[in-house]
Design a protein around this nucleic acid. Structure first.
Length: 442
RNA sequence: GCUGAGGUAGCCUAGCCCGGUAAGGCGCCGGCCUUGAAAGCCGGUGGGGCAACCCCUCGGGAGUUCAAAUCUCCCCCUCAGCGCCA
C-alpha cells in the first residue's frame, strides 16, 4: 500500500508514476481514493463537531444530575444528537472503507530506473553471463529426458493429482534436494538466517504481502479454514514481522527459507505440456530482507548478485533483465529477472525474480521501524529474491547438461550433495560403477 | 473438539463487579543536578483532521444509554488444561 500522506501532498507525482504502468484502471483507482478521502475528511470534521457537542452535553448533564438540578433543555438536545451522529458516522465509515479498500488495490510506485515499456519485450537486459551452448546432437526436452532416464513420472502424477504435478524419482529427487542444499549453504554463508516458516497463512497477513487478485488466480484455499497454501516463502517470511516494531539497529534482517510453493495460476499461463517448468507445486529457496529505506537499493543489488552467484556456480548461462513498467507486478517498485539459457528451447527463460518492494508490503503488514523501543513514522523496506527454484533449475540442468549418449552430467558444485556422483544414466546404460547415480538405494 | 483464563498505548500492568475526561510502572526524549555519568527530581512520550483547537483510541462488530474499557449479545484471536495426533 502506498502512503496516503503522499497521495494528499503530491497527487500529481503519484499519478504520473502510476501512469507509467500503462494500465488506465490504476488512474481510476487513484481518482477514487482521492474522492473518497476528500469526502471522508469533510464528514470527519462534521462528525467531530457533533461528537464535541455530545461530550459537552454529557458532561453538563452529569454535573446537573449530581447537583439535582433540572436539565430538561440539555436533555432534549442530547436526545436528538445520537440519530444525527449515527448517520454521519455511517457515511464517514463508508467513505473511509472505500478509500482504504481502493488504496489497497493501487500498485506500488516505481523507481525511476525502471525502463518504460508495455510488456516483456520492453524489459531491458542489464547483464549477460556465460556462453550460449551450441549442441552437436539433437537435444531432448527436459521432460522427455527425465522420463527416458526413469527419474520422473508425469503420467502417474497426472493420474494421482492432475496436470501440473510430478513425481521425481531416484537421481532427480536427489538433484532437487542437492540444489536446495547447495543454494542454502551459499546463502547462509552470506549471513542470512535460516527460517522454516508455516506453509499456510491466514488471509489477513496474506493481504499484506500480495496482490489481492492473487487470491482467486494463484492461491490454493484450504476449505473450511481461513488458510491459504503459500505461493512462495516470500509470503510467510514477510508475515513473520506482521504488526511488529523493528529496532532500527537490528536492520537489515536477512532471512532465507527452503519451502514448497503452491500455485494455481488460473487465467495466467496455465501448465506446460510435460515437465516441471510450470507446475502447481515446486521447491524454492528464497531470500527475504527487511531493511532501512536508504539501504534497499543496495540490498536489491546484493540479492541479485547472490542469485547470479548460484547460476554462475552451476555454470548455466543467463541474462539479467530490468523488468519494464508494463510488465512489473503490483507489489514491486523495481524487479530484476534472471533468465537462464535453455539449450533445447534455444531461449532465455525466467528462473529468478528479484524484487525491491520498498515500503509497500511493510505498510500493509503494519510493520514499523523504531529506535530503542520508540516507534517512529518510518516504514521499513522489504525485498525478496529467488535463490533457486528447483523446478526451473532442474529443467535447465537437464537440457544443458545432457550428453550424446543419453546421460546427464551432474554440475560439479552439486556432486558433494549427491554422494559424489558425476552422471545420471538411463536404465539401459546404467553400469554398476559407483560414480553413476541411479538414485536407488545402494 | 471441550473447559477455563485472557486481549488496555513500544512493553508490562490497574480500572470492569458498582457506566461519567484511561491511572501507574518500564523504556524512550528533554530539563534540573554533576567534571562526566548513574541515582534522584521535574516535564514530555498512541492515532487522525491540523493553524488554533478539537476528535478518536481499551481485540472486532452490534445493542442498551444523554454517556460504555466498564452492562448485554455475536464474532475473532492468544494462552492453559483435557481430548485427538506424527
Amino acid at each position: 500500500m502506498i502512503d496516503l500522506d503522499l497521495v494528499r501532498r503530491e497527487p500529481e507525482k503519484v499519478k504520473e508514476n502510476l501512469g507509467r504502468r500503462q494500465v488506465p484502471q490504476y488512474l481510476e483507482l487513484f481518482a477514487t481514493v482521492q474522492a473518497a478521502d476528500n469526502q471522508w475528511r469533510r464528514l470527519h470534521q462534521e462528525g467531530d463537531r457533533l461528537r464535541k457537542r455530545r461530550n459537552e452535553l454529557s458532561r453538563a448533564l452529569g454535573e446537573a444530575r449530581k447537583k439535582g438540578e433540572d436539565a430538561k433543555e440539555l436533555s432534549e438536545e442530547a436526545q436528538g444528537l445520537p440519530d444525527k451522529l449515527t448517520e454521519v458516522e455511517r457515511l464517514e465509515r463508508t467513505s473511509q472503507e472505500t478509500r482504504d479498500r481502493t488504496l489497497m488495490r493501487v500498485p506500488n510506485l516505481l523507481e525511476t530506473s525502471v525502463p518504460y515499456g508495455k510488456d516483456d519485450r520492453d524489459n531491458a537486459t542489464v547483464a549477460t553471463w556465460g556462453e550460449v551452448p551450441k549442441p552437436s546432437f539433437p537435444l531432448l526436452s527436459h521432460g522427455e529426458l527425465a522420463e527416458k532416464l526413469g527419474i520422473a513420472d508425469f503420467d502417474r502424477a497426472r493420474r494421482a493429482s492432475g496436470a501440473g504435478f510430478f513425481y521425481l524419482e531416484g537421481a532427480l529427487a536427489q538433484l532437487d534436494l542437492a540444489l536446495q542444499r547447495f543454494a542454502l549453504d551459499l546463502i547462509l554463508a552470506k549471513g542470512f538466517r535460516l527460517v522454516a516458516p508455516p506453509l499456510m497463512l491466514r488471509r489477513a497477513p496474506y493481504e499484506g504481502v500480495t496482490d489481492l487478485s492473487d487470491f482467486e488466480n494463484v492461491m490454493y484455499k484450504i476449505e473450511g479454514d481461513d488458510l491459504y497454501l503459500i505461493a512462495t516463502a516470500e509470503h510467510p517470511l514477510g508475515a513473520l514481522h506482521l504488526g511488529d516494531l523493528l529496532e532500527e539497529e537490528d536492520l537489515p534482517i536477512r532471512l532465507t527459507a527452503a519451502t514448497p510453493c503452491f500455485r494455481r495460476e488460473i487465467g495466467g499461463h496455465g501448465v506446460d505440456q510435460k515437465g516441471v517448468f510450470r507446475v502447481h507445486q515446486f521447491q524454492k529457496v528464497e531470500q527475504f530482507v527487511f531493511c532501512r529505506p536508504e539501504d534497499s537499493d543496495r540490498i536489491h543489488e546484493e540479492l541479485r548478485a547472490n542469485a547470479e552467484d548460484i547460476f554462475q556456480k552451476l555454470r548455466v548461462p543467463y541474462r539479467v533483465v530490468n523488468v519494464c513498467t508494463g510488465d512489473i507486478g503490483t507489489v514491486a517498485a523495481k524487479k530484476y529477472d534472471i533468465e537462464a539459457y535453455f539449450a533445447k528451447q534455444g531461449a532465455y527463460r525466467e528462473v529468478v525474480s528479484c524484487s525491491n518492494c520498498t515500503d509497500y508490503q511493510a505498510r500493509r503488514l503494519g510493520i514499523r521501524m523504531g529506535k530503542r523501543g520508540k516507534p517512529g513514522k518510518v516504514v521499513p523496506h522489504t525485498l525478496n529474491s529467488t535463490a533457486v527454484a528447483t523446478s526451473r533449475a532442474m529443467a535447465v540442468i537437464l537440457e544443458n547438461y545432457q550428453n550424446a549418449d543419453g546421460t546427464v552430467t551432474v554440475p560439479e558444485v552439486l556432486r558433494p550433495y549427491m554422494g559424489g556422483v558425476e552422471r545420471i544414466a538411463p536404465p539401459a546404460l546404467r553400469p554398476k560403477a559407483e560414480t553413476v547415480a541411479t538414485g536407488d538405494a545402494s
